[in-house]
Amino acid sequence: MKAKQNWRLMALLLPAIALICVLFLNPLVGVLIQSFVGDDGFTLKSISKLWTSRLARVVLERTFWLAFTVTVICLLVGYPAAYYMSQLRPRKRAMITYLVLLPFWISILIRTYTWIILLGREGLVNNALQWLGLTEQPVQFLYTNFAVHLGMVQILLPIVILPTVAGMVNIDGGLIKAARVMGASPIRAFWSVFFPLSLSGAATGGLICFILSLGFYVTPTLLGGQKSLIIANLIDLQVHKTLNWGFAAALATALLLATLLCLLIFWLATRNRPEFATGGLSR
């Protein structure tokens, strides 16, 4: 009886599973196969190019480094904001959460173009700097690493803040009191109790941010220009310009494996820590 009911409940998952199989797994397998198919059947040429081609290596390294620095900046900027939010009363926190989510109402494309308008040679920022007399010549903001980081951090910040807040809200306030009465100053109570317990939420946010950063395309392309090619640009180039679909597929496979590797490392590093088991999201 019980088993039968479980099966009926499982049936509710079928539409979602079917959708994933057709729209996600199917093309994914296609890409995997593509990376082993050349003009004359099976080949390892595309895959081996991942480590023989200097371009591929440089771009992969750059992509990872960009994702890493963006994640670190998001965590450094997001953590204090999340702490502030976690200390608010629930009603006010909900209000601030809406504000944090507000940028999601605007398309990434529009937000990225807005940065172009703001950061351009004749843009608002340069005009203001010149008017204030801080600089004679317009500063080159666009098509720099700075612009790419600015754009990506702006988009990814909410994704880091929200799980961090959720993790912090779950921390029992009684623990901080307990630490205080046992002789910890407010600062020591923070570092020895609150901070370690907040890491699970922050790590979840950081992980999502890192994985999303690896696959970013629009923002780095528009704000970074030609000089700072990252993996998504390279894949696009292989698909649309050089028509080397095999190599494009190999690059995509590498990106997928890298993402899975990140998840695996996270899982291995946290599996014995009970506070990470829920990813800090709920208890």
Partner: peptide
């Protein structure tokens, strides 16, 4: 923290990220 008071809470308030020994050591470390 300067009042030198020991306290036991109804909800235990053990630090979940520290083992038993580290929990008991906390006031001495402070």
């Amino acid at each position: 923290e300067k009042r030198n008071i020991g306290m036991v809470f109804q909800s235990y308030s053990l630090f979940p990220h520290r083992n038993v020994l580290a929990n008991v050591s906390f006031p001495l470390q402070m």
